[in-house]
C-alpha cells in the first residue's frame, strides 16, 4: 500500500516535470513526436532506476561511513555519467534492438537533471532502498506520461493559427502551463 501511494504521488500529484520542474530540457526538446517521446521515456526509466539504486548504495555504504557526505554532488554526477556510458556499451553488445530504440537518447540523459534530482531527493527524504526504487520508477513513469501527453498535443499545435510572436516555444510553454494546471487537479489525491 505504501509503495502504491509513492507511485501515485510521483506520477500524478508531484509530477516530476509539471510540478517539480525537473527534466524540462528533454520535455521541450525531444517531445515533437509521440514515438520519440516514448523512446526517451523508456531510456529515462531504465537509467533513473539504475542510477538511484547505485547512488543510494554509494551514499549509504561509502559516503556516510567515511563521513564525506559533502562529496555527494561530485560523486553522484560521476557515477551517473559513467553509468550512462556503461549502459550504452553493454546494451550495444547484449541487445542491439534495444540499443537501436534507446541509443540516441542515452548521451542526453547525463545532463538530464531529473536523474540527479531523484537521486538526491531519495536521500533528502530518508527513503530506504525499496522505497527509493519505487520512487524512481514512479517518477520515471510520470516523466514518460508528461512527455507523451505533451508530444501528442504538440503534433497538433503546429497546425493551429497562433499569433506570430507566440509561435514555437512560447505557445508550447503556455500549453505546458495549462497541462500543469490540469495536473494540479490531482492534488489532494494522496
Amino acid at each position: 500500500m505504501e509503495y502504491i501511494l509513492i507511485i501515485i504521488s510521483a506520477i500524478f500529484v508531484n509530477n516530476i516535470v509539471l510540478a517539480q520542474f525537473l527534466g524540462i530540457c528533454p520535455f521541450l526538446g525531444v517531445s515533437g513526436k509521440v514515438k520519440t517521446a516514448v523512446g526517451m521515456g523508456g531510456a529515462v526509466l531504465f537509467v533513473m532506476t539504475l542510477a538511484t539504486i547505485v547512488t543510494w548504495l554509494i551514499m549509504t555504504y561509502v559516503l556516510v561511513p567515511f563521513e564525506i557526505q559533502y562529496m555527494q554532488t561530485i560523486a553522484y554526477i560521476l557515477v551517473i555519467a559513467s553509468l550512462v556510458q556503461m549502459v550504452e556499451i553493454i546494451l550495444k553488445k547484449i541487445s542491439p534492438s534495444l540499443y537501436q530504440a534507446l541509443g540516441v537518447f542515452l548521451p542526453l540523459i547525463t545532463t538530464n537533471c531529473a536523474i540527479l534530482g531523484v537521486a538526491i531527493l531519495v536521500i533528502q527524504k530518508d527513503m530506504d532502498l525499496g522505497q527509493s526504487v519505487v520512487y524512481a520508477v514512479g517518477n520515471a513513469l510520470g516523466f514518460m506520461l508528461a512527455l507523451v501527453i505533451f508530444a501528442g498535443l504538440r503534433e497538433h499545435l503546429d497546425k493551429l493559427p497562433i499569433p506570430k510572436g507566440m509561435k514555437g516555444v512560447p505557445a508550447a510553454l503556455v500549453m505546458a502551463g495549462i497541462l500543469a494546471l490540469a495536473f494540479m487537479g490531482f492534488a489532494g489525491l494522496v
Binding site: A19, G165, M166, V169, P170, L173, G177
Partner: peptide
Amino acid sequence: LVFVLAPGAFFGLAYLIALMKK
C-alpha cells in the same frame, strides 16, 4: 495565486520569451 504555483512559471516564461523575441 496561480502565478506563484507551477502553471504560472510556464505562463510567465512563455510571455517573456515572446516579448524578448519582439
